[in-house]
């Protein structure tokens, strides 16, 4: 087993081609070559905190404002899901709750866990960490469901006085939160996970 870094080489993260360490751009795809994204964790944390910062107002302010003949109603993310459950559509309510509460919260925790364990140089459960990262990458986009629902409904439900729906401010902050956590996950250099393994293996010798 030998890594590109051990061999004095650098791997292009876009196209997987290997180059001498001195080279700074991939000769095949033009991507910038870096043996490790040394400031990767700084970016991860910067996006992580920004995402978290906008996640709070996203949950406190209304996502949807519904105007009907009987009055105006505004619902937050969780409130909206509970309302759907009251109508008897528990399955759909579960999807909404899962996509807009469980996934974002789990994502914040997972990214923080990965970043901290890399900072500590932990060499345990490397495969599980890699797998966790892949899940985070795959699942993040699904949190956009609620934002899409708001956009759809506010275009669709414009029935003069009978009913109309407008987006609330949480629609924007929630969308930003999803985008920032996606950027946070994408800034994470997974090679850092495996480096801690190399350190541990080479120490006793």
């Amino acid at each position: 087993m030998s890594t590109a870094r051990d061999m004095g080489l650098v791997t292009c993260t876009t196209c997987a081609k290997v180059w001498p360490m001195e080279q700074d751009r991939c000769g095949r795809c033009g991507h910038r070559l870096k043996s490790r994204q040394s400031n990767s964790l700084q970016w991860v944390w910067a996006f992580w905190f920004t995402g978290l910062l906008v996640y709070f107002p996203a949950n406190l302010y209304p996502m949807l404002v519904t105007e009907t003949l009987t009055g105006t109603q505004s619902g937050t993310i969780v409130g909206g899901a509970i309302e759907i459950a009251h109508h008897g559509d528990v399955g759909i309510a579960a999807i909404v709750l899962f996509a807009s509460v469980v996934i974002p919260v789990a994502k914040f925790i997972a990214i923080a866990y990965l970043a901290i364990s890399v900072q500590r140089g932990s060499a345990k459960r490397l495969h599980q960490k890699m797998h966790l990262y892949e899940v985070v990458e795959f699942v993040g986009r699904w949190s956009m469901i609620d934002v899409f629902v708001v956009a759809i409904l506010s275009a669709l439900v414009q029935l003069s006085v009978v009913a109309s729906i407008h987006p609330g401010s949480a629609a924007l902050t929630f969308a930003l939160s999803v985008i920032f956590t996606m950027l946070s996950a994408r800034s994470f250099d997974t090679r850092l996970i495996w480096d801690s393994h190399d350190v541990r293996v080479s120490e006793p010798q």
Partner: peptide, 11 residues
């Protein structure tokens, strides 16, 4: 003739 793993740097 080499290929590197973009996720763990193995060659």
């Amino acid at each position: 003739q080499l290929i590197g793993c973009p996720n763990c740097d193995e060659v």
